[in-house]
């Protein structure tokens, strides 16, 4: 399946949601003082772990106190 065959109308909402999640995770990271584990690690995870990266940060990385 080449790039031209990808149905972009179908895939773009998925990418859009993914991008929004990454942006929110990064905004939150820049605001919070401390995270569980080093901050740079969560920046990398949010950016590069596809689909679940930002979710991992929000559920595990974020300090809730």
């Amino acid at each position: 399946m080449g790039l031209a065959e990808v149905n972009w109308a179908l895939v773009s909402p998925l990418i859009g949601i993914q991008v929004i999640l990454i942006i929110i995770a990064l905004i939150d990271l820049s605001k919070s003082e401390r995270t569980n584990g080093p901050k740079w690690m969560w920046v990398l995870i949010s950016l590069f772990v596809s689909i679940i990266g930002p979710i991992l940060y929000f559920t595990i990385g974020k300090r809730h106190d």
């Binding site: 998925l14 949601i17 993914q18 929004i20 999640l21 929110i24 995770a25 905004i27 939150d28 689909i51 930002p54 979710i55 929000f58």
Partner: peptide
């Protein structure tokens, strides 16, 4: 941001 990311995760 729970109000945004929780719904987005389920939609995704």
């Amino acid at each position: 941001y729970k109000i945004i990311w929780v719904p987005l995760v389920f939609i995704l």
